[in-house]
């Protein structure tokens, strides 16, 4: 126990000191160089800690993943594109379609609700409370979120006592209960899961958008109001454009979250049954449960390829941002 406290304290004190010391030390080092070289060397020194870590922990494993994706289950035989063909001919298409739904609805849902709350709560005295309520689902661990939504979506046969909130409301309204988590018609199960995820992640969007909202100068908004703009015009012409870089960041994060969705699919809809399969869940099965490293890796690479459009969008956005500032 004691040693753990000491180690933790050491880390909390020493690591910041080391990192600040590192930046100051590099500046010393740079000052030895000639003028033009200083500006050339500095960025690389600033990037070094992050890229050393990322190379060791993410980039090298990813290169291995790409290598595995062309091999058999344990990497002992070359298989070319077989694993990719296997995925696309198997659950691949269903997963891709479901992931498109996930990405679209999760992103739009969290952004629209998150932005509304961030903007509306900015005008009321209970802002802190409102944001806390939206944040709460984030603070609840994933296992508990699954239990919670079991209570929400619970299904009992028509005519018996409903134990789930949603079906209680539906039956009170005179309709028959819906077996949300096992219903593949109209992809009800998929949408039921997406809603859980929106519930969990809207707090994320709210907090980040709200942080950004607070950095907009109040004078700017006041000036617009003095000029006779109504609240909607102020939002559309000033707030929204100024928030758009942050909206892009949150969207990118939510798109990636939507692509990586797996634990709800895994636990709540029987490992991707009822037409709910997703790319990441299939990857988890192949890679983790079945030790099919070749297939699992190929699916992971598909996941990487899927975000290329998102990255291109980000690159354009950053170039634009740098062009105008």
């Amino acid at each position: 126990m004691d040693t753990r406290i000491i180690t933790a304290l050491e880390v909390v004190l020493v690591v910041p000191a080391v990192l600040v010391g590192y930046i100051l030390a590099t500046e010393r080092l740079i000052s030895l160089a000639h003028g033009k070289w200083r500006e050339r060397i500095r960025p690389w020194l600033w990037l070094t800690p992050a890229f050393v870590l990322l190379t060791a922990f993410l980039i090298i494993p990813t290169i291995q993943t790409i290598w595995y994706s062309f091999h058999n289950k344990d990497g002992s035989q070359w298989r070319g594109l077989d694993n990719y063909a296997w995925f696309l001919n198997g659950t691949g298409l269903e997963s891709l379609i479901n992931n498109v739904l996930w990405v679209v609805f999760l992103t739009v849902g969290t952004i629209v609700i998150g932005l509304s709350v961030a903007v509306l709560a900015d005008r009321v005295r209970y802002e802190s409370l409102a944001k806390s309520i939206l944040f709460m689902p984030m603070a609840i661990s994933g296992v508990c979120a699954a239990v919670i939504w079991k209570f929400m979506y619970w299904y009992q046969t028509p005519g018996t006592t409903q134990t789930g909130v949603v079906n209680e409301v539906i039956t009170k309204a005179g309709q028959s209960p819906i077996p949300f988590l096992v219903d593949s018609d109209y992809k009800i199960a998929t949408f039921a899961l997406i809603f859980i995820m929106i519930w969990m992640w809207t707090g994320f969007a709210t907090v980040i958008l709200s942080a950004s909202l607070k950095s907009i100068s109040p004078e700017l908004l006041e000036a617009a109001r003095v000029d006779g703009a109504n609240e909607w015009q102020v939002f559309r012409k000033i707030t929204f454009p100024l928030l758009s870089p942050t909206i892009a960041v949150v969207s990118t994060t939510m798109i990636i979250t939507g692509l990586k969705t797996f634990d709800l699919v895994y636990t709540l809809t029987a490992n991707g049954s009822y037409d709910t399969q997703t790319i990441a869940n299939e990857m988890y099965n192949q890679y983790f449960s079945f030790s099919q490293y070749g297939r699992g890796s190929a699916i992971a690479v598909v996941l990487l390829l899927a975000i290329v459009p998102v990255m291109l969008f980000n690159i354009r956005r950053f170039q634009f941002q740098e062009g105008i500032r």
Partner: peptide
């Protein structure tokens, strides 16, 4: 059965029951 076969057996039971 191999885990992949076992998992598919579980899942196909659901399809069959439906």
């Amino acid at each position: 059965m191999p885990t992949a076969m076992n998992a598919e057996f579980w899942k196909q039971i659901l399809v069959f029951v439906k």
